[in-house]
Structures are given as structure tokens and as C-alpha cells.
Design a protein around this nucleic acid. Sequence first.
DNA 1: AAAACTGTAACAAAATTATTTACAATATAA
DNA 2: TTATATTGTAAATAATTTTGTTACAGTTTT
Lengths: 149, 149
Amino acid sequence: MFLPLYCNKNNYRMNNGRFSIALHILVLLDKAQGELVSSEWLAGSININPAMVRKELISLRQHGFVQSKEGKNGGTTLAKKASDISLGAIYESVRQLSLLGHQKNTPNPRCPVGKNINAHLDGLYNDTERVLIDQLNKQSLADFSAKFV
Amino acid sequence: MFLPLYCNKNNYRMNNGRFSIALHILVLLDKAQGELVSSEWLAGSININPAMVRKELISLRQHGFVQSKEGKNGGTTLAKKASDISLGAIYESVRQLSLLGHQKNTPNPRCPVGKNINAHLDGLYNDTERVLIDQLNKQSLADFSAKFV
DNA sequence: AAAACTGTAACAAAATTATTTACAATATAA
DNA sequence: TTATATTGTAAATAATTTTGTTACAGTTTT
């Protein structure tokens, strides 16, 4: 279900850019009220390439947020009610590496601090991310989408 | 005091890798109990280049966490008590772009959603980051450092 | 005066992220 | 049934960001 932790070729890795793209897509789909929306159209609002949108749609589909229909007049709609999609769940769908963590963190094992720091950092990052997700979970896609006219 | 929001040349930009490096440095300095520690030595424990350490030390110094002494037998020490340095403050010293934000987020202004999404995203990011910093602030450098033998 | 450092800058390399292109597969509509 | 619009996916390329390296002037101690 989840993408592998390290995937360099055709999938993204970071938490950053993808969250806003995913959320933007989902708001647009919510506003479309069930009508099929093409990746071309979504890309036009976000001002990125349709292929980027389609890549993110793969993930959103795998996470059960959206469903797509192929072929002419095809497109994508929400797969569940916007009130049943929490922002925390969206975050988790794009998240792949720990929030504050390091890519190549290979401290010196001969140093008492270096030897243990990764374990302690992991604990800290996990606790922190848990709080972050809880905070995001206070809001659903419906809540966020309602901010737009 | 703070680095500019966009700085591509000789300064870093992201939140990720720097936090662990900064924290690692500060733990090592705390363990040194006031003795001057060279960037070479710090780099040895973290297993990165001394110049990288020195770059991060510039920032830590500007934020008042450490002080350095130049010249032979020089080095760096903590500039305040470890119990007076919160992890949230360390995070803020390395943070430069918003937590979940996008680099180039230039949505289509002709779309009602695209036109307003950045404002709403900013609000969301700020609220979320506030919670994250509050969580990190529950722990001081002294607390974190105490986890190491 | 030599040696061991810091402080910086400039440059180079690696990794990540974004864009583009292409095209097979699928479904609709003329 | 053929043309068309659209997804699904891969591959290649470009842009950007991040990390690492080298170099050396300036400081302080010995």
C-alpha cells in the first residue's frame, strides 16, 4: 500500500511539495461535486504539468481518496466524502521520510554520542510527527475546502 | 539575524538535515562541559566534513547557542546553559521555509481555488508548525543530552 | 616564526524534485 | 468503426537544492 521508503526513480521522496499539490487536487475535486475532472484541468489550476498531477493521483488513488475513470470524458472524483478525509491522512499519504531526519546520517560509532544519536533522534522525530499529525487531523478536507468561496 | 528566506549560494535552505547536525553538535558541546572543541573533532563524531560543521556553527553562534574562540587551541563551547536551550529554538534556528510548503507554488490566479490556496495553506502551515515547535519546546538540550551515557 | 585553529568563499558533486515527451490502453462519441 | 479524449505509465531530461571539498586569509598560542 505504501510506497517504499527509498524510491528514487519515478516517485518523489519528500514531505514538502507533495502535500500542497495533493491538498490542492483534493480541494478542486471537492469543489467539482462529483463531476469527473481531468488531470489537464487540475494541472491548469495548480499550474504544474499534467503528468505531475497524474503521478500524485496514483498515490491518492492507492490511498483510497480518489477514483479515476479512463478513456474519453474520463477523469477523477473523490472516492469518499470530504468530511471523511482528514488532513493528517493526506499528510501521511505523501510523507516518506521522517520529518526532521537526515538522509545519510552515519555518525561515528566509536563516539558515545554518535553511536546512539540516531536512536534518540528517531524517538524525537516520531513523537514530534505524531503531534503534527494529530494537529492536522483536527481538520478534514471538507473543513479546509469550506474556506474557499 | 535570520538568514534571508531564499538563499541559494552558500547557505542551506531546508529543515531536514540541518536539525540533526545542529543537535548533534550541541550535544557534543554539552558533553564537553565547557572545554573548547574543534570543528575537526565535532566533524569526526558526526562523520561529516569540518567545513560543514563550521557552516552550521556560524548559525548556532548567530543564534547565541555557542561561542567560538579563534586561533590555536581554539574551538567552540556552549554560550548558555543546556537547560536554557529548547529543542524548539534549535529547530527555529535551522528552519527556513515552511514545514509543508512548496518551493515554487504559483497556482493559477484565474481559478477561485488556485487564487486563494496559498493564503489558506500558509495559515495551515503556521498553525501546524506552531504545534510542532511547542512539542519540541517540551524538551531542552539538557534533557536530550541526558539520554546519552 | 611555526603551528593549530576559526571564518569564509568559491567551487564541485550528488541527490532530489520538476518537467517534458511519448505512447499504449481504454472508453466515448460521431 | 474510426476518430478523439483521456488515463496510466515509463523514460529521459532539466532545474534546483543539498551536500561535500578545497583553499586560504586571519587569529591566537607556543
